[in-house]
Structures are given as C-alpha cells and as structure tokens.
C-alpha cells in the first residue's frame, strides 16, 4: 500500500518537469556591404549567412543603397559599432579614408576585417581575391585574343576603392609589356552601374579603333555587350554570376575572372570566426580567382553545381 502511495506521489509530483531551455546570446558579426542590388552582393550575403549559421554566430548585415553612398555606409558601420557587435566586416566604398567608425571601433576594441575590397591601411585584415593579379590576367588574355595588336579601354569601378584601383594597375602592368597595344581610356565609377547608351556612343565616337574592353564589374560589362557586339569588340570582365556566365556561354563576353561572391562571403565569416576564437590567422586571406573562358566553362559548371 505504501509502495503504491509512493508511486502515486512520485508520478504526481516527482516527475514534474521544470525544464528551462535557455540559449545565451551568440557573438555578433556586423557586416556592411557596398550595395544590395546586384547578384554578386546577394551571393556574398548568402555565403556569409551559411558560414555564420555553421559558426553559431549572429549576422547583422547592412547595405547602403548604392556603391556611391559612402556616408550611408559609414553611418551604417557606425551604428553597428554603437550596437557593440563583436567583429565588424566592411567592404569599404572608400579604401583610403579613416572614418569615424574605425576610430570608435579601435576605442571599443572591436576588430574590423575588410572583404572584397581592402583598406589601404595594411593593418586591416583582408579576405578576397588578388585584384591586381586578376587585372593582369584579364589583360593578358585579351591581348592574346587580339593577337597583341590594337587599342583597349577599361571601364573601371570607383577608383576610391582599392580593389578597382588594383585591377586597373594590374591591367596597366601587363599592357606595358605589349609594345603594339595601349590603354586608350579608363572610365571610372561603374562598379555596380551600367554605362548609359549616350556614354557608350560617346566612347565609340571618341575611340573608333578600340578592339577590346576590360570591364571591372559584371554589371558594367553586361551593360555594354549588346552595344559593342556589332563592332567586333571583345569584352572581358570580372565577377562570376549567373548573367555574366550566360554572357560568357553565348560569347558576348570572352573571359571572366571568376570571383565567387558566395565563396568570398563564406570565407570572410570563416576567417572572422577563426580570428574571434583566437586561432592564428594571416593578415590577408587571398582566394583563388580563375580565369573562365568559353572552353573552361564546364569546369565552372561542375564547381557551381557542387
């Protein structure tokens, strides 16, 4: 009887659940991009979110409305510093400045990591491709394709950004080796922007002998392929994203530097995670960027499907 009563009491009270599941705050990574509109930046965001999930970190991601909006980017970064994120990742619109948020971050001891675009300050870690090398290789390919003859033009991004500047430097470095070739124009400010029809026609009128164009962003490249197609001008570009790959497939773009947005995003967060957890990380994490042509597309497809 006593046993039965004991069982009863145990069943009624003893088994009472008092479980509380509590998950403490994960560490927070603040990210500021340069833009949110192009596929490249969406891929970066996707890669970052995947890596943050795996690392158990919380991602707070802000984007200015356009790549030109430096003030907004700095304010967004500033607000993340105010929010006391644990690490801040920035793709600076202006690599050369030393904005307010960096000062505050230094004061608060919040580390900053640059990705996609490095700061000129070599103390800020960088995750991304070697832009100078990329420019060099694109120029090399284009010159070969043009049989080392003729004029070429460059549609560059915002040259305040070190990545775009390095790409142009890379191109010039190579062209110097080609006695029969020269860069006849470098149009700046098309990092994530297309040239207007008028701008293209103006360039065509100005440089009728042009045989090849190196675009430093996929958006700029795709904006001019239709216009230059009839003039037998070869276009090579940066950034591997679905529309630029399609353009490569149909021949309107001859070669691409395959800078994978997803990979950059993923690697950036992995780098930050390792750094945050006290592992030894190099100052720069340079990602491989292969040159994609119509022939090597198969390889790309394989990697992309993976």
């Amino acid at each position: 009887m006593a046993v039965a009563a004991g069982c009863g009491i145990w069943l009624w009270w003893g088994g009472e659940k008092k479980d509380v599941i509590s998950r403490s705050d994960p560490y927070r990574i603040g990210v500021v991009t340069k833009s949110r509109t192009s596929e490249y930046w969406m891929m970066i965001q996707s890669g970052m979110e995947t890596a943050a999930r795996q690392a158990g970190a919380e991602l707070i991601l802000f984007s200015p409305e356009s790549e030109a909006d430096q003030e907004a980017q700095e304010k967004l970064a500033g607000s993340l510093i105010k929010k006391n994120v644990d690490v801040l990742a920035v793709a600076p619109i202006d690599s050369g400045t030393y904005p307010e948020y960096r000062k505050t971050a230094e004061k608060k001891g919040i580390p900053i990591v640059s990705y996609d675009t490095p700061f000129e300050d070599p103390d800020v870690p960088y995750v991304g491709i070697d832009n100078q090398k990329a420019g060099y290789r694109l120029a090399e390919y284009l010159c070969e394709a043009l049989e080392h003859q003729g004029d070429i033009g460059v549609i560059a991004g915002d040259l305040r950004q070190l990545n775009h500047r390095q790409r142009v430097e890379g191109i010039c470095d190579y062209i110097e080796k080609e006695p029969n070739m020269q860069v006849v124009f470098v149009e700046e400010g098309y990092g994530n922007r297309k040239l207007s029809e008028t701008e293209i026609h103006k360039l065509q009128d100005q440089y009728p002998e042009i045989r090849g164009i190196i675009a430093n962003s996929a958006v700029a490249a795709l904006g001019l392929v239709d216009e230059v197609k009839t003039h037998n001008i070869l276009v090579v570009s940066h950034d591997a994203q679905s529309d630029s790959i399609e353009a490569l497939r149909d021949g309107s773009i001859s070669a691409l530097i395959a800078q994978y947005g997803y990979e950059i995003g993923y690697e950036t967060i992995s780098y930050i995670d390792a750094m945050y957890k006290g592992k030894n990380v190099p100052k720069k994490k340079i990602l491989e960027a292969e040159l994609l042509t119509g022939e090597s597309l198969e390889k790309y497809d394989e990697k992309y499907s993976q």
Binding site: K17, K18, V20, I21, S24, D25
Partner: peptide
C-alpha cells in the same frame, strides 16, 4: 531568470514562458 539570453523558454509548474 526567464528574461535573458537569445532564447529562453520553459515552465515553472504553473506557467509556461
């Protein structure tokens, strides 16, 4: 004890939180 962290849920016997 029940307000804190990123997530916190459970029961104390008479209420669920």
């Amino acid at each position: 004890k029940r307000i804190g962290g990123a997530e916190n849920f459970g029961t104390d016997g008479s209420n669920l939180y």
